[in-house]
Measured scan of single mutants.
Amino acid sequence: DYFTVDMEKGAKGFGFSIRGGREYKMDLYVLRLAEDGPAIRNGRMRVGDQIIEINGESTRDMTHARAIELIKSGGRRVRLLLKR
């Protein structure tokens, strides 16, 4: 199942961390959800969800650093296409 999650940044960021990336020879996944962060309050994202797109850009062969950069580059908002 594919689904989109739109979030607005909180005081401590978006409230999730990721693992994976090209340099680890793996796809990008949601690693952790911060307690009471925007990701957990949104209610749609879960640990283990695969991140397919960040702000419309495919994560295929994307490095971990580039993924972080893209998440931050959207300013106060981020849109993720996830797969569960």
Score class of each variant (00 low, 15 high):
G10H: 05
N55V: 01
K72Q: 12
V5K: 01
D36P: 06
R19V: 05
T4Y: 06
A11K: 15
A34C: 15
L70F: 09
M26T: 12
G48A: 06
G74M: 06
D6N: 07
R84N: 15
Y24A: 15
A39W: 05
V47A: 12
I68G: 11
L82C: 10
R19I: 02
L81Y: 15
E8G: 05
I51S: 00
R44Q: 15
R60G: 12
I68H: 07
D61V: 06
V47T: 09
Y24H: 14
R60V: 14
E53C: 09
A11Y: 08
T59W: 00
D6E: 15
D27S: 10
T59A: 12
R32P: 04
R84F: 02
Y29V: 12
I40L: 11
I40Q: 13
Y24P: 07
A67E: 00
T59Q: 01
E23Q: 04
A34H: 14
M7K: 03
R46D: 14
L81H: 08
H64F: 11
R84C: 07
E23G: 05
N42W: 05
A11I: 15
G74F: 03
K9P: 07
R19T: 08
F16C: 01
R60F: 10
R76M: 11
G20C: 05
G48T: 03
R66S: 08
R41S: 11
P38N: 10
D61A: 08
I71A: 03
L81P: 00
D6Y: 05
E35L: 12
L82W: 00
R19Q: 04
G56T: 07
L80G: 01
G75Y: 06
G48R: 04
K83G: 15
K25W: 08
V78T: 10
G74I: 04
G37F: 06
R41W: 07
R46T: 10
E57G: 06
K72S: 13
E8C: 15
F3H: 05
G74W: 03
E57W: 10
M62A: 07
E69Y: 07
D6T: 08
I18H: 01
E53F: 05
E57S: 10
T63D: 05
G56F: 04
R60L: 09
I71T: 06
R44E: 15
V5P: 00
G21F: 01
V5I: 14
P38D: 14
M62V: 09
F14W: 12
L31S: 14
E35Q: 08
F3W: 03
R84A: 11
V30F: 02
A39Y: 04
G20E: 04
G20T: 09
Y29G: 06
S17W: 13
K83Q: 15
Q50V: 09
M7P: 01
G43S: 14
S17E: 13
D6L: 07
Y24Q: 15
E35R: 09
G48Y: 04
I51V: 11
E57A: 11
A11E: 07
I51A: 01
R76G: 13
L70H: 13
A34W: 09
G10V: 04
T59C: 09
V78F: 02
Y29D: 13
L81D: 05
F14M: 06
R19A: 10
V47S: 09
A39I: 06
I52C: 14
E57N: 11
S58H: 11
D27I: 04
L70W: 05
V47I: 10
E57K: 13
N42S: 10
D1V: 07
I68Y: 06
V78K: 01
I68F: 04
G43K: 13
I52V: 12
V47W: 04
T4H: 03
I18M: 14
F3R: 11
L28T: 03
R77H: 12
Y2A: 04
A39G: 08
S73L: 13
D36G: 10
G37N: 10
I71F: 13
I54S: 00
R66P: 00
S58F: 12
L81E: 15
E69Q: 11
R77N: 15
M45Q: 02
R66M: 07
D1M: 03
I54V: 09
G15M: 01
G37D: 08
G43M: 06
V47H: 10
F14S: 04
A39L: 05
R76Y: 10
K83S: 15
D36V: 06
A65E: 12
E35M: 09
I18P: 01
R41M: 15
N55D: 05
S17G: 08
G75L: 04
D49N: 03
N42Q: 10
L80K: 00
G74S: 14
A67M: 03
Y29Q: 11
A11Q: 15
I18N: 00
N55M: 04
Y2C: 07
E8M: 03
D1I: 03
I52A: 11
H64Q: 09
D1R: 10
E69A: 10
L70V: 13
G15T: 02
L28R: 01
G21S: 03
D61H: 11
M26P: 04
K12N: 12
D6F: 05
A11R: 15
L70T: 10
D36C: 07
S17Q: 10
A11L: 15
P38F: 05
E53S: 10
Y2Q: 04
